[in-house]
Amino acid sequence: MVLHTVNKSPFSHCLLEQCLQVIGDKHALLLLEDGVYAALTSSPAAARLLQCHSERALAVYALAPDLRARGLLERGLLACVEAVSYADFVRLAGEYDSVQSWF
C-alpha cells in the first residue's frame, strides 16, 4: 500500500494524471503545494478523481494549510477530497507502507 503525493497543479502539469495511471488499489493520494489545485471542481482531473474514488475507493487527501494559503478552503472542492493537517500527513505516511512523491 503506497501513499502518493503530488505537488504540481493539474492545470499546467500532467503529473497527477501520470500518478493516477499507476496508482494501485488501496493506495491513497495526498495533494500538497500546487497539487491542491486538483481539488477544485474545475480541475482537469476532477472527473478522474471522482471516478477513482467511487469505483476503486481511492482515498484523496489535500493539505489544508496549502488549500488555505491559496484561497481554496472555502471554494467548491471535490466531494471526494478530504482536507488534512500536517499531523494527518505524518499519520498517513505511517499507515501506508511507503510514500511515492510525484514532483
Binding site: 507502507d97 511507503s98 510514500v99
Partner: peptide, 17 residues
C-alpha cells in the same frame, strides 16, 4: 503495465522518488 507498476510499488519497503 500500470497494474504491474502498482504491484512493484506494493512490494517495496522504501521508495526513493
Amino acid at each position: 503495465d500500470s497494474r504491474q507498476v502498482a504491484a512493484l510499488m506494493d512490494r517495496q519497503e522504501i521508495i526513493l522518488s
